[in-house]
Design a protein around this nucleic acid. Structure first.
Lengths: 225, 225
DNA sequence: GTAATACTGTACTTTTTAGTACAGTAAATA
DNA sequence: TATTTACTGTACTAAAAAGTACAGTATTAC
């Protein structure tokens, strides 16, 4: 039964068919998305009202409903858009020929500045809050964001193993460990508003400690079997 | 102005003064707390209605309002109560004379079975969802739960350092690293309902890997300065 | 120019829920 | 027994928000 889906022809490809009459205003839609984005990120799904979105976008409420079927669809559109923004430039492999320690520290800085950015924290908070009510969205978010980064890191690790710089039995496990150490508990606290943004000094110390521990487990030392 | 608060005498210490008339029924209150607890943990603050609590506790809505001023107070009472339950038996020091590796693995199992328990996951989810609206409660939750456990673990590490089994420069950092590794990303996924409960085998492997990495960084090897 | 569609503003319906009013009953103290 | 307080059930108020109806204006394709 499921196989058949692959052969179904998409129902009427009415793309930019210019269907007679005044066309929709793309700038209106963009304005709605911008307004909704900031409100959803600030207040979450439940506490953001469509009226507030309309007001902030300087648009009639009915205009919103002409672009998005309902509140859920609007929310999904916002999350999709923000996930795309969050994607990291996949330039991990460029680090493959640096000294391992330096590369890991550099990466640590880039990752922390991403995940501690106000936007990322807000998105993460909203996702967690809505986890039970929007499980599909969470999945999209995870695949588009965290997962891609981890895959790229795994490939970098594999390259270093090939170069004989690291000794890693289980790459997925090591990847998870690196990210766990880099995130640490500061991230959890930042999510819960329990800690102010860490200072540059704190971050530096944190990242160095994480990389040191990671390398003590995986770096190839002179004179090993 | 604020200082004065410290000197204000508590307004009439009517403790168990038996203030004439029918006394409040403690079992009603307990029933309300029990019902509210399960509902708040399931649906969070906003989506739990007082009517639902009343119905589940088999009690009149007004009875709830006679025991708790409003919904927020009821919620706070629930969180307090659950925090107290979550506290781990502080028997960490009993592990001080076991072999370090065995102790860390044992501890890892206890910690994971705590934080992956349905109750803990639910509490954590509710806390995260309500973080922005109830910052004071979050603080209480953190001090009563996670923080106490970390302090106890830090003392255990210090004891091992004293015994010459470990070499740890910065105990808070090492503590954070241990907990980060033990929690890993599985916990995050479990919170977001992205992963089913990990199997015993997976947990075992995960904990072993975490402890191995931790010890490779902090265990004293024969023949070191 | 005409028909079709987009957009606006206002007002409305519907639903949900926190919190209250009230009238009555039950259980304790004095 | 009289009084005071706890509890119940029903019905209510008030507010908030999703979504719709409608009447009118603006903008485009044909």
């Amino acid at each position: 039964m499921y196989r058949m889906v692959q052969f179904i022809i998409p129902p009427a490809p009415k793309t930019a068919k210019a269907r007679a009459g005044r066309p929709k205003d793309a700038s209106k839609k963009a304005g709605i998305i911008r307004a909704a984005s900031s409100l959803f990120m600030k207040d979450g799904f439940e506490l953001t009202s469509m009226e507030a979105v309309a007001k902030k976008a300087d648009v009639s409420k009915l205009t919103i409903y002409s672009h998005f079927a309902n509140k859920e669809e609007l929310f999904k559109a916002i999350i999709h858009q923000r996930c795309d923004q969050q994607a990291m430039p996949e330039c991990f492999m460029a680090l493959a020929h640096l000294p391992v320690e330096k590369a890991l520290i550099d990466l640590g800085h880039r990752l922390t500045s991403l995940i501690f950015s106000p936007d990322s924290l807000r998105l993460q908070r909203v996702m967690q809050a809505e986890a039970t009510r929007h499980p599909q969205i969470i999945k999209i978010f995870f695949e588009a964001g965290p997962k891609r980064v981890r895959v790229a890191f795994g490939e970098l690790l594999a390259e270093w193993v090939r170069q004989g710089k690291l000794r890693v039995d289980d790459i997925p496990v090591a990847t998870e460990q690196y990210f766990s150490l880099i995130k640490g508990e500061m991230h959890q606290k930042a999510l819960m508003l329990l800690a102010p943004k860490p200072t540059a000094r704190e971050l530096n110390k944190h990242i160095r400690a994480a990389v040191t521990l990671f390398l003590s487990g995986y770096q190839v030392k002179a004179g090993r079997s």
